[in-house]
Design a binder for these strands. Sequence first.
DNA 1: TAGATTGTTAATCGATTAACAATC
DNA 2: TAGATTGTTAATCGATTAACAATC
Lengths: 224, 224
Amino acid sequence: MSFRKPSAGKGSKKGASAGDQTSSDIPRKTVYRLSLYFRCLGLMVANRESIVSSAALASVAGVHPAQLRKDLTYCGPLGKRGTGYEVIHLRNRLEEILGRASLQPVILVGAGNLGQALLSYKGFAREGFEITGAFDIRSQKATSGKIPVRSMSRLREFLGKNGIRMAILSVPGHSAQQVADELVGAGIHAILNFSSTVLHLPETVAVNNVNLAIELENLSYFAR
Amino acid sequence: MSFRKPSAGKGSKKGASAGDQTSSDIPRKTVYRLSLYFRCLGLMVANRESIVSSAALASVAGVHPAQLRKDLTYCGPLGKRGTGYEVIHLRNRLEEILGRASLQPVILVGAGNLGQALLSYKGFAREGFEITGAFDIRSQKATSGKIPVRSMSRLREFLGKNGIRMAILSVPGHSAQQVADELVGAGIHAILNFSSTVLHLPETVAVNNVNLAIELENLSYFAR
DNA sequence: TAGATTGTTAATCGATTAACAATC
DNA sequence: TAGATTGTTAATCGATTAACAATC
């Protein structure tokens, strides 16, 4: 989950948020769905499917066919009327737009319970995101198969040296705002916020909120 | 993150989804924000604040004051004109509506890399959700401090015996749909889906999608 | 009473979907 | 050519915000 808004406005996204940022002409919700289409197309490539219609792709992605076609208008004309889309071609175009070609370095801040769990999660790497550094108020020696957790005091130096723009924030709620300010001050432009605090940051900083407790709470409400 | 829609419609929420369900008159986005307000009020209670205005609470929650007031209309009249809201009173009312009073049992299905991480995450318990059972195709003995991972074949029996309605799904994408069908068949009404697959399920089942890779991908797009 | 703030309605805004001409 | 499906515009729908009367 995440809460920031589409590129056009300010306000709150999924549930709530503070501060939004612009970075392109494609609305945030559309960018999100493009990621989804990209993944569906990856499966189709693996299945040796060469052509797909908007109806078929939309069905797999769980969206309305018209919405898919609307979303794709942001990517230029890509299909062939009467036929559909070339799977590989469409996938390549989305990869290009989403900037998936290159590996993205990310730092993780807050190596507590959730932070440690995220550090051991291999899904990020599988998707092209490498956690190149981990930070916490208390540093931890590297143990087998794990990267070292550095002291927060080394943050600025590390970011500058490695040109990193993205951070995963998994500190306790009570220190999230302060740490986020620190991150932004040190040059971070995008934060995946797992803390339960709504961050107040400049609009130039992109924030996506993932609040697992609220997701469950939300489900439990609708499960009754 | 999560993708299902507000209680009223069908379509996709944050990014994409398939299938939606109704369960009340309060729109899903509003329910989500009520959770957020509930947490902010918790902090205020801890700070011994007794009264709060819509402007102040909205600011902390990162939403527009009018939106907060609109959201609260679903909860009945709660404030005092000219003064604001009694913190404790409002918090209690939200707790009531969200059904936070009681502890919710949840199962986790898929004890791979991410599943193990989620099992060791203590944040769920802290928020009133107890992972009472874990399942995987291959069962695992309980080790110190961890609950046992049961074989999927024991699922139906376990659910029936414990009256569990919610599941966290952390299986690989390629088996997510099949396992989800199994869960629904066994009586699950709400799924927190961490897999990268968009699930196609009956509208009566609530699904929230959390796709960490897409969250990061989305951020990386806007961080450029 | 004067000032403040809620609750609510109406206006705005954006996102989704329907419809269809263009065209393969 | 006839059938299919895209790309796009217009219509619909829902969510957010502005505005203000009610009232504490």
